[in-house]
Design a protein around this nucleic acid. Structure first.
Lengths: 212, 212
DNA sequence: GCCCTGGGTGATTCCCGTTTAGTGTCAGGT
DNA sequence: ACCTGACACTAAACGGGAATCACCCAGGGC
């Protein structure tokens, strides 16, 4: 037993055979199942089977189930974040930036419903707060990129109501509201998604931001 | 074994001892636990223990776990529905009706976060569509009460954008968005709830509905 | 008296996520 | 050439969920 304290000197040692690929394989399989069957449907055993490996093996590469799925969420949000970053650097009006970011946000949600739910619908208390940290941070950074232009707008005195903080949260939330409802209640009869996005954007932008 | 087909003629037979109270006891215990610990925390065994009965006994009175919790949700929504019904009959301007309904909706959510999540956040695919029928219907009726005034407003040509259908959905969803986010992501730093509700209401009403 | 029936139970089944103890294998140091 | 140890992996098991099974037992109707 001793104590086995020795990590620092270990530096070399190439990754073995396909060992370094497993993590990726697992993520790929998990993502496929998760997208098709949602959080509850993506069980450890199913993922392991898909990879062709025992369920225990997943614990070699991930601490637990949540970490696997949150990793998937992380990658998806990184795409969203990069969109937001790109938009925020574009030389366009702040209002236009906000509009495009919200539009991208909603389209992202409709295109990745399960991932969206996992990350933004809290996954319903199923996942502890600390575990979500990494993903939460990314979400925060997305929101930061978004609230930048909002602060510009507020500074220009063009907010009809609320502070930069609350206005940003409300704008974001309005978009979250429509996509999360449509995603989680697909059985209700909704107006066409395109129209809902349009009305949400128009309504909320005109409601909170002065025209000129 | 035979076939055991006989239900129609059975009509008399009073409810025995406390048999007819059990259902209520179970619901009360389940509600307490559910409110305190959420959907996952309210396990069959815990509820049964609280009632002082074996877990199997719950299946005498309810088909499965979901039915118990949905029953709780149903009762809660009935309150919301009655508020909406009362408001819709009041002799006030349709716009004011809409505003008050949305206000009541958001306050209801903040006051019953777990119930709200169960009913309106889809409970994350955990519950099958058919089971939700009863609760869904109530939700629909709430929405119907709400969309009545919206149609009035639309008929008066006071909708700035969208149809009566999409406008109603977007207004509702905006309110859902802010409360669901605050409820499911309590760790983020939110503006005060009162301010968020206010900004949401003002913004979205002014954005979608013409002033006069 | 009998018998049916409805509320109730303990044991059991099935499926989760996760843990434990162990196996084979390969890289490097000696 | 031989250890040594880290690594990728596995089979089996554990504990805890929901749900079902095969039974009990008390009591009202006949």
């Amino acid at each position: 037993m001793t104590v086995a304290l020795k990590k620092p000197p270990r530096s070399a040692r190439k990754p073995k055979g396909d060992g370094h690929m497993r993590r990726g394989e697992i993520l790929a399989a998990a993502e496929k199942i998760f997208i098709a069957e949602g959080y509850a449907g993506a069980t450890i055993r199913k993922i392991a089977d898909a990879v062709g490996v025992s369920s225990t093996a997943l614990y070699m590469h991930f601490r637990d189930k949540d970490q696997i799925l949150l990793e998937i969420g992380k990658e998806a949000i990184e795409k969203l974040l990069s969109i937001n970053v790109a938009l925020s650097q574009e030389p366009i009006d702040a209002v236009e930036k906000v509009r495009r970011m919200l539009d991208a946000y909603m389209r992202f949600a409709f295109e990745n419903p399960n991932t969206y739910q996992l990350v933004f619908c809290g996954s319903n208390e199923a996942i502890s707060v600390e575990k979500q940290q990494a993903v939460s941070d990314l979400g925060d950074r997305c929101f930061d990129e978004f609230s930048g232009p909002i602060r510009e707008i507020a500074a220009a005195g063009r907010l009809k109501t609320g502070t930069a903080e609350s206005a940003a949260q409300v704008l974001w939330a309005a978009c979250h509201g429509i996509v999360s409802l449509v995603i989680t209640k697909p059985s209700r009869s909704w107006a066409p998604a395109e129209e809902l996005m349009q009305v949400t954007l128009d309504g909320v932008m005109h409601g909170l931001i002065a025209d000129r």
